[in-house]
Design a binder for these strands. Structure first.
Lengths: 328, 328
DNA sequence: TTGAAAGCGTTACCAC
DNA sequence: GTGGTAACGCTTTCAA
């Protein structure tokens, strides 16, 4: 038998005699033979691998993201090359370069990018699909969250629950998603006549920055409500408030953003803007698969977060009464 | 210039004239040239990639694990090929086969394995490092948690806090780690004269099974303490107890296992057995690097969890008094 | 110090 | 249906 025939058999071509094929398959099974992927990739120019480039890996947000991508990749028989902790876009660019010949496409999340990381849909020949906004790389297909709308709705919800002075714990300043959430908060405030002034505290998307924000707020006189730019900060916030003896939602209402799995399990459960993380992840991977297969893909898909009201933002009957009487 | 000279230059050999080298590097920089990794791998028989095979990807435990591995891999210039959701060992074996030619070594976690997945330190030529116990594959280097000791200590802590009737919410029955934790609980109980009888509820390591366990317990008359085989179940448990109006730790004490990051942020903070997840992950990766480099590696490294006492298991002064008078 | 050429293990094209 | 063989892009040995 020639290598050619073996190759054809193993790749499922039908121009192989049944007898030959059976014999080959039997022997391959006996030998536990697996084709060498590098050789195949060299010849085929396909690796059956998708690269995943994330800014970080801490917390349930990224965990859900990877889970969604992994599930979809397995369903399509694709491998996943993972690389993260690319806070700065420079590093992301380097990682992208290192991945170039190892993958057929890349899922890239780089909310801190400034200049264009990615050319029109690809970088140096590798197709790129963006997860979230990536400033300067608008040409690539992207799956983005409508952060503005989500933050706007959360803020409006807090206002309509009777809260007036609403503090916002912002995300990293160089993060586009974080900035959009801030913009949504501001817009909702300025649109509501009854709303108090803007009240912005710096944060960094991690639990600890939420903690610090709560400590600062508790020291400076509490607002009616605290809106954290993501759930992790809200959880840190909640913890620090508990330590200070501040009750949520009785003394202060609280809301987050993302609806990571844990948010429904904290005490009180967290009001938040639900982002279908795993679903976005799946679609991003399928988009990669489509691109590789040469199918047409949507250029941009926007996901609007869904307002999820839980106990952390509920207004207590008598607290509400007090507030309304206080403020007329 | 010949390809050979270019190759030597790019691989940092010193038998290249400085002038030639500079010229090559300059041109390579201009062209943004990156060697084709498949071609290189085909020639070198090295991929500079480590495979990571996990049973699941849900929750902070795995998220921390991947984070630890990723950090260490980046530090060593290695890539990560990730594959998960291999509940059943059959699938894990298939994934292992598919990875074979794509990686230099594999970090494998397969707590549900039965027969030997892995030969003496490798499977079909690929070195394997085990994360956690992997029944039947004891020949490979492994990084394991002393689940028995951890569970023993948690149980003893609960007993010494005055709790007598301690319920255990078990993990999946086919999971070795879960079984070891159960064994630790049992041993501690049988060793303490004052302890109540064994009280075991089935669980599955996920939040929801913790919820269900709590609901069952709340219906059947509460124990003094609930010890969940991992933190996720404890968090689900805590949530369901809150819904039922059961106070923790006043009405019932609670403890988990793993010390995932979120555990200190729930209300009340969770008593647990701290497993240095990210550190174990790092060491596992470094072990892979050592094996690839031909360095000697330890065959088995055991990590003893550290008891972390937080508010969820604290006994209230008067509750304690009541219990002692009732039983004493 | 450099270049020529033989692999590495596939796939794919072209004869037969 | 099948086999021979030229790529694929690199590393490495051997000569020069």
């Amino acid at each position: 038998m020639s290598v050619a025939t073996v190759s054809r058999t193993l790749n499922g071509f039908d121009n192989v005699a049944t007898a030959t094929r059976d014999r080959i398959l039997k022997i391959a099974g006996t030998l536990d033979y697996v084709p060498h992927s590098s050789a195949r990739a060299l010849s085929t120019r396909r690796t059956d691998t998708i690269g995943v480039l994330l800014p970080d890996l801490y917390g349930e947000f990224f965990s859900e993201l990877i889970r969604g991508i992994d599930l979809a990749a397995r369903a399509r028989g694709l491998h996943l090359l993972l690389s993260s902790s690319h806070g700065d876009p420079q590093e992301a660019a380097a990682a992208l370069r290192a991945m170039r010949s190892r993958v057929d496409a890349v899922i890239l999340m780089s909310p801190q990018a400034r200049k264009n990381l990615v050319g029109p849909g690809s970088v140096a020949g590798v197709p790129v699909v963006l997860l979230g906004s990536c400033p300067g790389s608008e040409a690539a297909p992207s799956f983005v969250i409508d952060n503005y709308a989500g933050a706007f709705e959360i803020t409006r919800h807090l206002l309509s629950a009777g809260h007036r002075r609403i503090a916002f714990v912002a995300g990293p300043q160089d993060n586009v998603e974080a900035r959009e959430r801030l913009r949504g908060y501001r817009a909702a405030l300025s649109q509501a006549a009854a709303a108090g002034a803007e009240w912005i505290i710096e944060g960094g998307f991690c639990e600890d920055s939420g903690r610090r924000a709560a400590q600062a707020l508790a020291g400076a006189g509490l607002p009616d409500a605290i809106f954290c730019a993501n759930d992790m900060m809200a959880i840190g916030c909640l913890d620090a408030l508990r330590e200070k003896g501040v009750r949520v939602p009785e003394d202060v209402a609280l809301a987050g953003f993302d609806d990571i799995p844990i948010s429904r399990y904290v005490n009180p459960p967290l009001t938040t803007a639900a982002v279908p993380i795993a679903d976005i992840a799946r679609q991003a991977l399928e988009c990669c698969a489509d691109i590789i297969a040469g199918r047409a893909v949507a250029n941009r898909r926007v996901f609007k977060p869904e307002l999820v009201i839980r106990a952390s933002s509920m207004m207590h009957r008598d607290t509400a009464a007090n507030q309304f009487s206080e403020r007329g």
